[in-house]
Each structure stands twice: as C-alpha cells, then as structure tokens.
Design a protein around this nucleic acid. Structure first.
Lengths: 204, 204
DNA sequence: AAATTTGTTAACCAAATGGTTAAACCGAAT
DNA sequence: ATTCGGTTTAACCATTTGGTTAACAAATTT
C-alpha cells in the first residue's frame, strides 16, 4: 500500500468517476465505488472535489466538452451540406465507438437536470445553428435541396446518428439482432444514414 | 387520517410509483416519496409489492405494454409502407403528448438493465419485423422504393420519431428554442418527419 | 356476535451512504 | 535535523433508506 505522493491523483479520480458515473448515473453511483475504482481512500474524493455533486459536474462537463466539438463538422464547416452530412455521420459513429457511454450519459442526466446547460449556453463556443442555417437556406434557394428548416434538418441528422446508440437495447430487441449483428448494422450506417438523409433532402 | 379500507389502494400505489419512477428513475426514486404521493403509509408499498424492485418492475412492465402496441402501426398493419410511415409518425407523436415520460423512462432503465427484455421477448406478441420485412421487400422488388434493409429503415423511423423527445433538453439547447417553439417543432414533425422518410426511400 | 382474515399504521431497525476529522505520512525548504 | 505544507488514511458520524414488526381496525366468515 503506497502512500507516496501520486503526481496526478486528481486525474485518477476523474477517470474513475467517469467510469462509474457514466455507467450508473448520478443517483446510482457510489462514492466508495469510485474510490475503489481509483484505488484510493474515499476521503480523497472530497479532498479534491468537495462533494459528489461537484465531482459529478466535473465528469459531466468533461463529457459534454468532448461531444460538443463533434458538432462542428455539421455546424461550422465550410463544405456543402451534402458533404457535411457525410462527414458528420462517419465521424460521429467513429467517435461513439471510442466513447460509447457519452451520448446516453449526457441525455440521461440532462433530462434529470436540464439546468446543467444554462451555464454552458453562455459560452460563445456553444454550438449554434447560425452558419448552418445560412448555408442551408442558400442551397435551398439554389434549388439543390428541398425546403426544410435548419432546426428540423438538424434534429433529423442528430436523431439518425445518435438514437441507434442511445436506444441500443430496445432496438436490438425489436430487430431481434445479437450483439455482433447490431455492431455491423451500426458500421453500415456510416454510409447508410448519410445517404438516407441526402436522399430525403436532395432535389433530383 | 382515514383508516377505512380503500377499494383500490394497489392501483393508487402503482399510479404514484409511475409518477415518481418515471421522473426520477429507479435509483433516484424514494419509497417514502411514492407513499406520500399515494397518500398512504410506506409499509403498504411492501404489503402490496414486497420490494422496491418488484414495484419498479410493475411500473416498467405497464409502461412497456403501453408503448409496444404503438409499433403495430408500423409493423403489422396492412397498408402500404408509405401509409404506415405516415400513420405511425402522426400516431406516435400524439401518443407521446399523452405519455411524455415513457420513451425516456424505458430507454434509460433498459440501458441500466438490459435483461428486462429477455423475459418479454418470449411473449408471442412481442414486436418483430417479420411482416414489415416481407412487405418492404415486396415494394422494393416492385420498384416503388429504394433498396434498404428492414432493420435500417425501422431504426430510422424510430430514430426520427422517438429521439426528438428523448433528447429534448439537448436539442432545445442546440437549436436555441424555447419551450413553445420546440412544441411547435414537434407538432410540425407529424407531417415533416413522415415526408422526410418517404422522400428518402421513394423512387421517383 | 365471535372468530378469523385482510388492510393499515406508527415505530422501529440494520445497512448503506455522503461526508468529516484527526492523526500520520512524505517531500521540500530552512 | 527540524519544520512545514500538502497529501493520504482509518475511524467515525449523522442521515437516509429499504424494509420489518407488532398492534390495531375493518371486513368477512363462521
């Protein structure tokens, strides 16, 4: 049992907290489990993060800050709408494979406490539809794609990309597919989902 | 404080439990809060349902049994794929307005405990894609719609209809819309979402 | 109407849980 | 070597929580 000063205990805690919070949620997580996961004494959690709530907020903030930049592909990129959709869909699915718990974690905890975002929305880097809307309207005027509001298209893009992961257990049951088959379905979506969206909005 | 025998205490409990579980989840819910909500003594919860776990399962089962029949519109109906999509989209959104917590509740708790479904999957009425797949393949062969697997199309339909409600807080923030505007967006989706899907799969 | 079963309550209990404390530990500066 | 600061731990604490119990009330049966 080492007692020597560990250079980055604080990060170890955060990493352990991430694991536990993201799989059990705020209410289901136990401070003791986080401490065990980090291999340290429970008091350390409070020494570095004061309370469960603050530790949770640190984890949530980290997760959100990882997810938000993903949206840049679809919101602030300079390529055409069609390219953006293709890129985002492919990128996002790769992202999820690396961080499978994130979308669920965020959506879940946000539903329990929507106030989490009001602070973050003040950040000038917080994702917004402005540029996307302009570009979309331009392409609509050019007759490249059908008339659709930026909000609805954005919701559709998010839905088709995020939902299959968020609702995985439910969809697995309904489609009656095992783990591997479902994984393959998700891989296929890298192009399938993008094509689906483009078909829906492209004027032939 | 009445002590007289109440004809349907059991149902009162279930109703109260539904309210509390669906807004706070299994881990966040408190037996005392459910008792208070039902206006009875906490011991009654155990008298009728033995444990928190069993009471929760009763609530979950009820919720799932309410959601599952909604899928009949898209899975076992006799109309064309196009009509099914239109009907389901419109019906589902009406359903959600009546039971706003259900999809989130189910998805959330299913992620925490995927085993909940293995018992239910044995039920012969459990939703399955068989009929939908046959019909889809037929329409694909007839050249009415583009080639797409039943699983992918089903996932897309679910995603476009369910996700906007599940991820409401997140989408509200990203699209920077207030409550009323978002409600209007959802209403619009009754036709918008259906048309989007149909555009995506219909051969012109 | 007496006895028995069912429904209901207040009080209680043991375990779990987030959080605190006081002392010990350790590396660095004096 | 001693002191001093931040770091770490074991033990402890108050509260919360799911669950139990024993007594009592209301129906129901005999």
């Amino acid at each position: 049992m080492k007692k020597s000063k560990d250079e980055n205990t604080e990060e170890h805690i955060l990493e352990a907290a991430k694991l536990v919070f993201q799989s059990k949620g705020m209410d289901g997580a136990r401070m003791q489990e986080i401490a065990d996961q980090a291999g340290i004494n429970k008091a350390m959690l409070h020494y570095y993060y004061r309370s469960k709530q603050l530790l949770f907020e640190a984890v949530f903030h980290n997760a959100f800050m990882l997810l938000a930049p993903q949206l840049k592909t679809v919101l602030n990129d300079d390529s055409s709408i069609e390219e953006k959709i293709k890129n985002f869909t492919s990128n996002y699915i790769s992202f999820i494979v690396k961080h499978p718990y994130i979308p669920n974690f965020i959506i879940q905890e946000l539903n329990r406490n929507p106030d989490f975002l009001i602070k973050m929305k003040e950040n000038p880097n917080f994702p917004n539809l402005k540029k996307f809307r302009n570009q979309l309207n331009q392409e609509i005027e050019s007759g490249i794609i059908i008339p659709i509001s930026a909000e609805q298209l954005f919701i559709n893009i998010m839905a088709l990309n995020v939902f299959p992961f968020v609702a995985q257990p439910l969809l697995k049951a309904f489609t009656n597919t095992d783990n591997n088959t479902y994984k393959q379905l998700m891989k296929d979506r890298k192009t399938e989902a993008a094509n689906f969206i483009i078909n829906a909005i492209k004027l032939n």
